[in-house]
């Protein structure tokens, strides 16, 4: 398969690339902040999709890797003066290693049992970090203002953080696509459809699932480090919000699971909708409820998600919408 010849390969990458470039050229702080949040969700949802969309395992614990990896990276750069880039990689690596270890145990569980276990992991991790003194316990950690100086002041440090997030997002999209169009990915999708039948055909399901869990956990660790550095502090409540995991699931579902473009479209739609509702005078107080109604309608009537629906309806465009 010559993946690079597929238009579906270039479109998502080109979109993210152009998006970051436009923000850089504009050079406005507010535009950058908006784009940062949005891009962060694109990357979170896309990395979750590597597990959810390709293997069918529903994880509520994606935010654990954002939280723990982010904490670790932030710990390194605030307490040990690590460089942001290296700290972010280290945060991702920690998340990946943890996911590998956890995955060996937890991925034996199937279906809803796995989903429940990940809820437990999320709560246990939050409670543990709140009590873990090296990470500042319940109050968390702060970054010394001087830390921004080495990047030429706070303003430049924030731009650097954005650029790193941009690169990380491009990497998620790239990895997501490569996994999908590989021999490994074919095995994953066989697991998604029928795990026992896949094993009878020779797919090493336990190993394949663990590797996928590891890949999908690496990116949240990187993103977490960048996010907390941008904020200047990290605390347990911020780092392990169960609802952020669920929001990522919602985004994947909105756009279409198992598709590279799906989570991207889902993240942008969800955030856009939320932004509109939060500022609209009619819906301001009811924004959560309206978002809930919207979500329910999608699940009940468009279960394949927006991109999945278009693909199903117009088979001709399939090669453009992977």
């Amino acid at each position: 398969m010559r993946t690079w010849k597929l238009p579906g390969f270039w479109i998502p990458l080109a979109l993210v690339f152009a998006w970051g470039l436009i923000i850089l050229i504009m050079g406005q702080d507010t535009a950058r902040e908006t784009a940062f949040t949005l891009m962060m969700f694109v990357a979170m949802a896309s990395s979750l999709n590597i597990l959810l969309g390709y293997t069918g395992y529903v994880s509520f614990g994606h935010i654990v890797f954002f939280g723990l990896g982010g904490y670790f990276g932030f710990f390194l750069l605030s307490q040990h003066d690590w460089n942001l880039f290296l700290a972010a990689i280290a945060g991702g690596a920690l998340s990946a290693v943890l996911a590998g270890l956890l995955g060996m145990a937890v991925l034996r569980l199937r279906g809803a049992y796995f989903a429940l276990a990940t809820i437990g992991i999320n709560e246990a991790a939050r409670a543990f970090v709140s009590n873990f003194e090296p990470f500042g316990g319940a109050t968390g950690l702060f970054v010394n203002f001087a830390a921004y100086e080495r990047y030429g002041g706070a303003g430049k440090a924030l731009w650097l953080t954005f650029i790193l997030l941009w690169v990380a997002t491009l990497a998620v999209v790239l990895v997501s696509f490569l996994v999908k169009h590989s021999r490994f990915g074919l095995g994953l999708m066989a697991i998604r459809e029928d795990e026992d039948a896949a094993m009878v055909m020779g797919v090493k399901a336990p190993r394949a699932k663990t590797i996928t869990f590891t890949i999908s956990a690496f990116f949240p660790g990187v993103i977490g480090t960048l996010y907390f550095f941008k904020n200047g502090n990290v605390e347990p409540g911020d780092a392990f919000q169960l609802h952020m995991s669920i929001e990522s699931l919602v985004m994947v579902m909105l756009g279409g699971q198992g598709l590279v473009l799906g989570p991207m479209v889902g993240a942008v739609t969800y955030q856009g909708l939320r932004g509109y509702l939060l500022t609209s005078p009619i819906f301001k107080d009811l924004h959560l409820a309206v978002a809930g109604v919207f979500l329910l309608l999608i699940i009940l009537f468009v279960p394949a998600g927006a991109v999945g629906w278009v693909r199903g309806r117009f088979p001709r465009v399939r090669r453009f919408l992977e």
Partner: peptide, 13 residues
């Protein structure tokens, strides 16, 4: 899971 979560959002909202 998501359908009941949507109900959760509506009720909380």
């Amino acid at each position: 899971l998501l359908a009941t979560f949507a109900v959760n959002m509506i009720l909380i909202g």
